[in-house]
Nucleic acid binder design. Structure first.
Lengths: 205, 205
DNA sequence: TCCTTTATTGACCAATTGGTCAGGATCACG
DNA sequence: CGTGATCCTGACCAATTGGTCAATAAAGGA
């Protein structure tokens, strides 16, 4: 294993890398990886193209850095599920956190959506590794609660899929949702009580 | 309005246009619009690139033709909801039909997912027009059933979103689902009873 | 069979785009 | 200050890619 320690970033490096990642998030989340150009990223970041490539080796490098950087934040709510908490409240908290993330971070949601749609070329090892472990832990907690009769029994992994699907749908397919609802609706506000009711009915004992 | 009548297609035209659309579906559904090349489509169709462009004016034309051609089939199950049927059975039939479509036609599901993610540049008028009407009709039927006390009351449009999200999730994010479940699982088979139970609990009176 | 229409292709073009590089500007520190 | 390291850019390149076109081949009807 090579020495992983890196020299600390200078102030300028820190700032410009952040600018690039921020711009790249905007561009990738709208156009996908192939649809995004380094020029677009450079413009979004307010830098020149060669300068972007001074901080990142390639477009691929930017993309992979973005994904791995954001993955922890993306999975954080599931990690916070507390096996000692109140079962229904823990699930509801998770659902609300995921919906709030869709509302506040739709770009991140779409970034991951593109990546998974594409077959997750940059995330395969993570999908079968880290993610799987995190889900296994949450599924075990849920299963325990169900075994104790504190939650209605359902397949825990599919329950988790349902939470992902229902919350991320509002970010990933926002234009469709808005088109169907028409003007004067806030999808995220309406989704709150809907999901609340839904999961109470499914999981209530 | 110009005369829309076209000369009937020759046998060769029919066959080659079908080959191209079939190949394009495979390519677009994996790589998205920008990620797909006419060369890939040509190869998937078993034709040369200029020949592909002999049958379609442009890559855009192929894409738009695909979307509009498949849209009817995609929305058909919702149109078949029968206001005179048994409420819960009608909904369950719709859910099962959508799940079955995700299983049998994942490429179509991903094609639409890419399009919506991108902001639906080719479907904007349809989203606010035809789709909206179809959803309005279904929502009105559902609302009527709820008013009559034959279904538990929930926001009908969000109910529809939930069905879309939950069923299409298994097609669009299939690699993630499979990675989390691990080998030896058939996501679609397991999703069947899960969704069945879910919607019975939510909508049962 | 002959001749018009339709189908097919190799060669080509212009635009886009990921990435390089040499040299100049700027910064940080002694 | 001065000087070495860091930062930045215009110009450039090669590969990809959407699309064209003239010429050839294959259908098909009279």
């Amino acid at each position: 294993m090579a020495d992983q320690s890196q020299p600390p970033l200078t102030r300028i490096q820190q700032k410009n890398r952040d600018l690039i990642l921020e711009g790249a998030l905007s561009v990738f989340s709208v156009n996908g990886f192939r649809g995004a150009t380094i020029d677009q990223i450079a413009e979004a970041a307010g830098l020149s193209k060669p300068n972007v490539l001074y901080y990142f080796a390639s477009k691929d490098d930017i993309h992979k850095t973005l994904l791995t950087t954001l993955l922890d934040m993306w999975l954080a709510p599931m990690v916070r599920i507390d096996p000692d908490g109140d079962p229904l409240e823990e699930v509801m908290t998770y659902v609300r956190a995921k919906l709030e993330m869709s509302r506040r971070y739709p770009r991140e949601s779409r970034l991951f959506a593109y990546e998974i749609l594409q077959g997750a070329p940059h995330l395969t090892e993570i999908l079968g590794g880290g993610l799987r472990q995190i889900v296994d832990r949450a599924a075990a907690i849920l299963q325990g609660w169900m075994d104790d009769g504190r939650l209605a029994p359902v397949e825990p992994r599919h329950l988790i899929f349902s939470i992902w699907a229902l919350t991320q749908h509002y970010a990933d397919f926002e234009v469709q949702v808005r088109a169907v609802l028409g003007p004067g609706h806030d999808p995220f506000v309406e989704a709150g009580p809907f999901l609340d009711n839904l999961y109470r009915k499914i999981l209530g004992v």
